[in-house]
Write a protein that binds this DNA or RNA. Structure first.
Lengths: 228, 228
DNA sequence: TCCACGCTTCGGTGGTGGCCGAAGCATCTC
DNA sequence: GAGATGCTTCGGCCACCACCGAAGCGTGGA
C-alpha cells in the first residue's frame, strides 16, 4: 500500500534514462562532480542539477562540496546492491554478473581535480602520517614540523603558501581512504611532475609512476616500490 | 549507454505506483488473476491489462491462461531479488530488514493457490522424485507407475483425474525449487487435510504439519521429521 | 445456442515531469 | 578587485503515459 508508493518512488528515480546514466556512472563508487555527470548523461547543467537534487533528496546519492565543485556518489551499499539487482534483470537472464569497478589504471594512480589520488595518493598520505609529517583531523590535515622539513628538502616551500585551507584531505572513493588535497596536495603533484616521478596519460586522468619515481618515493617518503 | 536505457526501462516499470502495487501483491510467489490484481491496485480492468502486458513483455512477470482467467506471477528469483533490493532502499536507511521475504511460517508451509508449497511442498515433491514416483520435465511432471501405486495406497486415485495437465510443477519462489501443482497437487493437499496431517491457519495461507503428519509423511513418503 | 464473465483493444483526455535558456549565486584565479 | 568557472533557480514548452469508457473477443456454463 503505502509501501508500494515508496517503492515506486525509488524505482522511478532509477527509471529515467538520464538518471540511470548518472547512477551507472557512479556505480563503481567514485565521486564525480555535477558537471561531469551532466556530460555523462548528455544533458545541460540545469537539468542535471535538478536530477541530482532529487536523487540526493531521496537518499540515493550524497554530495560533498569541494571548492566550486560538488561531488556526488552512491549513498550506501544498499543502493549499489539495488542498482546491481536491476542490472541483472535488465541484462536478460543468464545473469552475466555485469559488475563494474574503477578501471585498473585509474585505481592505481590518478589525478583528483589537481592533486594525486588513487593508490599513489593514498600511499603518499599514509607515508607522511606514518613519519609524523602530517596529522589528519577529519577533513583538515596539518603539516607538522617534521613535514615542513621533509617537504622543504624535497623542494616545496610550504611557508610560502598563505591560503587557507592549505592542506586538506580528500576522501578517495576507489580506496575508501584519504589522500592529500589542498594547496599542499597540488604542490606535491606539481613537484612529482617536475621530477618526472609520474607521467600523465594523454586521454584520461590516469597517472603512472616512472622508474625514477619508484626510487624517489622509496627514498624520500619510504614508500615500498611494490605499492606503486 | 545502451545499458542505462535497459536499466531505466526495467526500473521504470517498477517506478509506477500502480505497477509496484501489483508486483508487491505477487511478491510472495503466488499467481493471481488479472482481475484481482486490478482490484489490488485500485484500477479498472483495461488499465490493469495494459500494465500487465508491459510487465510480461519485459520479462518481469509470466502468465498462464487457465480457462477464462489469466494468472500472473513473478517471472524469476532475480526479479524477486530486485524488488527486495528496492524495498530495502525504499524503507529508509537504518536497514530495517523490511524483507520482501516470505514470513517464516509461510516459508515453512503454505498453500499456493490450492496446492501445497513452501518447504513442505518442496519436500513432498523431492521425496516423490527420489522414490521414482514422479519424473519432472520442465513445467510438466509425470506420475510413474510406482507413483500411481504409492498414491493409490495413500488414498488418491490418480486414474480418475481426466483433466490435462493433471500434474504440473510450480516454481516455489521462497525455496527456488519446484513443487507439485495441477490436479495431483490439489489432490495431495486435500488428502493431507482429510488425514489431518496439516492444519490451516485461519488468517493466512500458512500451513503447519501436525504431529500425525510428521509421522505420516515419514512413513508414506520417507520425509525426515526434521525437515518439517 | 444463448448468456455471463474475464480479459483485451481502441480512442481520447489530462497531468506529470523532463528539458532547456536565461539569470543568479558562490568560488577560484589572476 | 575583475573575470572565469561551476552549480542552482526560474519560467515555460512539449512529449509521454496512466487512466478511463466503450466495444470486441474468447471461454465456460445453462
Amino acid at each position: 500500500m503505502s509501501n508500494a508508493l515508496e517503492v515506486a518512488q525509488i524505482a522511478g528515480l532509477v527509471g529515467e534514462p538520464t538518471r540511470a546514466n548518472m547512477l551507472l556512472a557512479l556505480g563503481d563508487g567514485r565521486a564525480l562532480p555535477a558537471g561531469e555527470l551532466a556530460a555523462c548523461a548528455g544533458i545541460t547543467a540545469p537539468t542535471a542539477s535538478e536530477h541530482l537534487a532529487k536523487l540526493e533528496q531521496s537518499g540515493l546519492l550524497v554530495s560533498v562540496r569541494q571548492g566550486r565543485h560538488r561531488y556526488y556518489r552512491i549513498a550506501s551499499p544498499e543502493v549499489g546492491a539495488m542498482l546491481e539487482a536491476v542490472m541483472v534483470v535488465a541484462a536478460g537472464f543468464p545473469r552475466p554478473a555485469a559488475r563494474f569497478r574503477v578501471a585498473p589504471e585509474l585505481q592505481r594512480g590518478r589525478t583528483c581535480y589537481n592533486h594525486l589520488a588513487g593508490q599513489l595518493g593514498v600511499a603518499i598520505c599514509d607515508a607522511l602520517v606514518h613519519k609524523n609529517c602530517v596529522a589528519v583531523d577529519g577533513e583538515v590535515a596539518h603539516i607538522l614540523p617534521a613535514g615542513l622539513k621533509l617537504l622543504a628538502n624535497w623542494g616545496i616551500e610550504v611557508r610560502r603558501m598563505s591560503k587557507h585551507p592549505y592542506c586538506r584531505t580528500c576522501i578517495d572513493w576507489s580506496e575508501r581512504r584519504h589522500h592529500l588535497g589542498g594547496a599542499v596536495g597540488i604542490a606535491i603533484h606539481k613537484r612529482c611532475l617536475e621530477l618526472k616521478w609520474v607521467e600523465h596519460h594523454l586521454d584520461s586522468r590516469a597517472v603512472s609512476v616512472t622508474r625514477a619515481g619508484r626510487l624517489g618515493f622509496e627514498k624520500a617518503f619510504g614508500i615500498a616500490g611494490a605499492v606503486l
